[in-house]
Each structure stands twice: as structure tokens, then as C-alpha cells.
Nucleic acid binder design. Structure first.
Lengths: 105, 105
DNA sequence: ACGCAATACTTCGTGTTATGATGTATTCCG
DNA sequence: CGGAATACATCATAACACGAAGTATTGCGT
């Protein structure tokens, strides 16, 4: 997929991946893979950004001798998802402008 | 609209604005305004990029004592619009992932 | 026992890109 | 006469995705 198009989805995809219960980086990537592929460096950058924006909270816990960071969505994160749905309506308007069959000159 | 979401539409919007006949910068901005606002510096940057990518051709002509640059879409530009429609299908898949009502835990 | 894949996260450098600020120059209208 | 509209250009900046490379542990096949 075109990278610029993808950009608008990355943040909300990550939020969506944890909106039904906490998750962690490695799992998020695998869960999203069928829908949208992203590199590890991209995901962890996004997680940090969303945390900084107060859309996620983090808790570190040990699992099988390894440290895992579990992420939970906040109200602000849910608000971001709601905004996305509003934005999507505008996107659809623009989409129709782009694909419209205009009057050939 | 969220800026990241907008990014994926800008190029194709410009292409769409000239796909039915040549146009020029100032007019494109005004035509797109109801759908998607962009600053002049953004548009002229995009026009140059699309020209460099062979998706547009340019011709300079005088109009009322002022120089205007008229842009025409190329086959490559039309191919880009076709790709966009394919990408949009993927976007819809991702969109459904984002807004799905998951199983609350 | 050895090695490789999988799990899990981090850091750094780079290239692409949108945008505000600013500038230039002409025409139109009140 | 002056300001808005027309028309395009350049520059600096900040956000962002990503590849590359690194660290460290567990699990599995041979």
C-alpha cells in the first residue's frame, strides 16, 4: 500500500489493537499483520508517541523470564478513535471527488 | 482532518483535479477547497513532485500579462489513480479492523 | 550440546513530506 | 489610490516511517 495512505492508519490501528484489553508490542504486530504490516521500529516508536500523548498507559511485567510492556488504552485514546471515525467521513467525501467520473473535455 | 490521514490523499487529489483537462495551481486549490484544504506551498511542492515522477506535464503560457503553468495528466498519472483505487480497498479492510466491535474482555 | 528461529524491545540515522513565512509581480475593483 | 485577488517560488522546520543493528532470553530440531 502507498506509504502516505498507510500513515493515517498506523496510530489508530495500534489503538484499535488494544481497545478490547491490554496487549504488548510483539503481539500487536502479529495481530495487525493481516491488515497492515509495520516494522518493529515503527511500532515501538508509535507506542512511545501514543503514551506521550496520554492515549496509552504502560505496565512492565515479567513473562517467562523476559520483560514485557503491556499497554492499555485510556479515555483519550478512545476519544482519538472516535475522532478517526469523524475524519473517515471526510475521507469518503474526498475519495468520491477523486474517483468521480468527471465531464471529459 | 488529521494531518496523517490527509497525506495519503493530497497527491491523488491533485491528479484527480486535472484528469478531465488541464488546469493550473491557483485554480486547483480553489477547486479542491470544499473537499480538502491545502496551502499554496504544499500544492506547488506536490505539482513539482508529480512532474518529476512523470505523472504530469507542464506548459507555460501567458494569461492577462501573467505567466501561468498549465498541467496535464500523463498515462503514468492515470495509472497512479488506478493504483489508488486498489489501495483504497485495502484501506477499507483496515478501517473495518479499526472500528470493529471486538469482544470486550 | 549446538545452533537457529522465535520472542521482545531499543536506538540511530535517513529520506520523505506538509506547512508557515516570506517574497515577487500583475490585475481588478471600489 | 490602495487593497484584495491572481499566480507562483523558495526556505527552514518538524513530524514521521523505516531499515539496520544491537541486546537478551526461550524453545526446538538434530
Amino acid at each position: 500500500m502507498d506509504i502516505q495512505l498507510k500513515r493515517g492508519l498506523l496510530d489508530v490501528c495500534v489503538l484499535a489493537a488494544i481497545k478490547d484489553g491490554e496487549s504488548y508490542g510483539y503481539r500487536i504486530i502479529k495481530e495487525m499483520k493481516p491488515y497492515l504490516e509495520m516494522s518493529e521500529s515503527t511500532l515501538y516508536t508509535i507506542l512511545k508517541r501514543l503514551e506521550g500523548a496520554g492515549m496509552l498507559t504502560v505496565r512492565t511485567a515479567e513473562h517467562d523470564g523476559r520483560l514485557r510492556k503491556y499497554y492499555n488504552i485510556t479515555n483519550r485514546g478512545r476519544a482519538r478513535l472516535a475522532e478517526f471515525q469523524e475524519d473517515w467521513k471526510e475521507m469518503m467525501t474526498v475519495y468520491r471527488f477523486v474517483i468521480r467520473e468527471g465531464n471529459k473535455q
